[in-house]
Simulated assay, not measured.
Amino acid sequence: MTLIASDKVISTILKHDTKVTSYKIALLRAINDVVLTYPDLRTYQSDVAVPLKLLAEFWIAYYWPFVDSNDPIQQGQRAQRQGQIINDMAFRPALTELRRQWEQVIGGLKNPADGFLLINELRSPRKHQRYPQSLIDTYQQAIAAVTKTIEMPIRYAGPGHWSIFEKPQAYNQVVSRTVAVPGTRAKDRCLIIPLDLWATFRQMSLCSHLAPGNLNFKPLLL
Rank of each mutant, 00 (worst) to 15 (best):
I164Y: 03
S205M: 13
V175F: 03
W162G: 04
K127R: 12
G183N: 09
W162Y: 14
V146F: 07
K167A: 12
G158C: 06
R130A: 05
V179L: 03
T149P: 05
K127Q: 09
D196S: 14
Y131D: 06
R126P: 00
V181L: 06
R155T: 14
A170P: 00
Q129M: 07
A180I: 02
A180F: 00
I154F: 11
H128W: 14
Q203V: 12
T147Y: 01
E166Y: 05
S124T: 09
Y131A: 11
A142H: 12
K167W: 05
T147A: 14
I164H: 04
V181K: 06
R126I: 14
P159W: 00
Q133A: 09
Q141M: 07
Q133H: 04
H209C: 13
M152P: 00
W198Y: 15
M204V: 02
L206A: 15
S205Q: 15
N172L: 08
T138P: 03
L206R: 14
I154P: 13
Y156F: 15
L191H: 08
P182T: 04
P182E: 10
V174F: 01
T178Y: 00
I164G: 05
I143G: 09
A145M: 13
R130N: 05
R202T: 07
H128E: 13
P194R: 12
T184C: 11
H128I: 05
I193R: 04
T147D: 13
T149G: 14
R155N: 10
V179H: 04
W162F: 13
S176G: 02
M204I: 01
T147R: 07
R177M: 03
G160D: 01
T178V: 01
I143M: 08
T200L: 05
L135P: 08
